Simulated assay, not measured.
Amino acid sequence: MKESLDFSFELHAHQGRARFALLQVTLGFALGGGLILLGLVAMSIVSIVGRKLFSMPVRGDMELMEVGASVAIAAFLPLCELRGTHIKVDALTGWLPQGIRTGLDGIAHVLCCAVAWILAWRTSLQMVDNHAFGDATTLLSIPLWIPLMLIVPSLVLLGMCALARAYEVLGLGGRS
């Protein structure tokens, strides 16, 4: 079954102000993640060229790539959830009636919300521990609590987006 994806970002008639605000925040997070990835690509190119031509790579380029990519990837997740573009495996449920599939989708979004908020909680606890113990990366000594601090808001936002999707999928919002 082929689904058409709507990549337009305008406010649809059935969306309220809260949904629109949530969409704008998630777009901001995704754009921030994209900028981080563009910076990482530029740094990687400089490092590769420096390594090959001048025997001078960017020091700690792999650490920067790991830290930056983790923050960027977390920033993309809320938009994927809010737009309903996460990968969905419906091979086992394709034969079920539409009402049951809709209910299962709603349950999946609620579970995604719970998991996102549990991850946000546990990541914030890890951030506090890393700050207290002074954990840092090996080469550049980047304090590990900093990227964790940047990931937590993305996880909280992911939970909010999953809750909004559950609300939408289960038809609890009605139409205005």
Results as ranks from 00 to 15, higher is better:
residue 44 S to K: 05
residue 107 I to R: 04
residue 92 L to C: 04
residue 7 F to H: 10
residue 24 Q to I: 09
residue 17 R to P: 09
residue 142 I to W: 07
residue 58 V to M: 08
residue 137 T to L: 01
residue 167 Y to A: 12
residue 80 C to G: 04
residue 139 L to H: 08
residue 118 I to T: 15
residue 58 V to D: 00
residue 27 L to E: 01
residue 96 L to V: 07
residue 20 F to V: 07
residue 140 L to V: 02
residue 128 V to P: 06
residue 13 A to I: 11
residue 160 M to N: 05
residue 142 I to S: 02
residue 121 W to Q: 11
residue 158 L to K: 09
residue 52 K to V: 13
residue 6 D to T: 08
residue 160 M to S: 12
residue 108 A to Y: 07
residue 168 E to M: 09
residue 131 H to C: 09
residue 19 R to Y: 10
residue 82 L to K: 06
residue 121 W to D: 12
residue 176 S to V: 15
residue 108 A to H: 09
residue 75 A to L: 13
residue 69 A to E: 00
residue 72 A to R: 08
residue 75 A to W: 02
residue 135 D to H: 03
residue 68 G to K: 03
residue 55 S to R: 11
residue 106 G to K: 06
residue 19 R to I: 13
residue 50 G to E: 00
residue 33 G to R: 02
residue 140 L to G: 01
residue 27 L to D: 00
residue 107 I to E: 02
residue 54 F to D: 06
residue 156 V to A: 14
residue 100 I to S: 10
residue 49 V to L: 15
residue 13 A to L: 12
residue 88 K to F: 13
residue 19 R to K: 12
residue 175 R to S: 15
residue 51 R to T: 07
residue 80 C to N: 05
residue 152 V to C: 11
residue 72 A to H: 06
residue 9 F to G: 14
residue 75 A to R: 00
residue 129 D to W: 03
residue 25 V to N: 01
residue 130 N to Q: 11
residue 128 V to D: 07
residue 96 L to S: 05
